[in-house]
């Protein structure tokens, strides 16, 4: 009897594992909206390690895969700073992560990240994803690529993936501010009405 229960349990475990595999295959690489946000531990420009779990007392976080060199990232730099200024006090600070291979783009080296962070007076961490494992775990494809994370009882949940807004080249011509709208909804206790957007951006420079 006891044996039966164990075999039944292992049967369910196998089914569960199979579903997990199917799930990740169906979504390709990375996370989908509603998935648990993968934890990470990366070095900040100040030399300290930052973990997503450091943020579990906040309402959530705005994770931005970005870099120094990409013209789209540069166009969005001030808007990323503004997001942090607007939402860090409301419980959604920005965490910037540079996933690019610095041997391919020297401008994105750790040293140059430090320079940029101090020039632009980043008040949020600017982390280096040296192994590129975090970008892969999230499924980030380009810079900038945003993941809005909302802390729930079950852990940090990805609630928005995509672009910052609908106009990269002209901040004054923006009509829809996707990240702002998503975070505002979450603060109001609602799910974001738009949870996934696509945007043009620089391909992440992967290691060979």
């Amino acid at each position: 009897m006891r044996l039966d229960r164990i075999s039944l349990m292992s049967f369910f475990f196998c089914v569960f594992m199979a579903l997990q595999v199917q799930h990740s295959a169906a979504f390709g690489d990375g996370v989908a909206v509603g998935d648990v946000a993968p934890d990470f531990k990366l070095m900040n420009v100040d030399g300290r390690m930052v973990e997503l779990s450091d943020y579990k007392t906040k309402k959530g976080a705005i994770i931005v895969f970005t870099c120094n060199h990409c013209p789209y990232s540069i166009k969005y730099e001030d808007r990323i700073i503004q997001l942090h200024e607007a939402f860090a006090p409301l419980g959604f600070p920005v965490i910037a992560i540079n996933p690019n291979d610095a041997t391919k783009v020297p401008e994105d080296s750790f040293e140059n990240m430090k320079v940029r962070a101090s020039e632009k007076k980043f008040r949020f961490p600017y982390l280096v994803d040296e192994s590129q494992q975090v970008a892969k775990a999230y499924g980030a494809k380009r810079t900038p690529h945003v993941y809005v994370v909302f802390n729930t009882a079950e852990g940090p949940s990805v609630q928005y993936i995509g672009a910052i807004d609908d106009n990269a080249s002209d901040a004054s011509a923006v009509e829809t501010k996707f990240v702002r709208d998503a975070v505002t909804s979450l603060i109001d206790g609602k799910l974001p009405s738009t949870s996934l957007t696509k945007a043009i951006g620089c391909t992440i420079k992967w290691k060979n």
Partner: peptide, 17 residues
């Protein structure tokens, strides 16, 4: 001007990169 509206119309598998 609005990539999120036309990227899928080029191809749904396109991430925008």
């Amino acid at each position: 001007p609005k990539p999120h509206l036309w990227i899928d119309r080029v191809d749904p598998s396109w991430s925008g990169s």
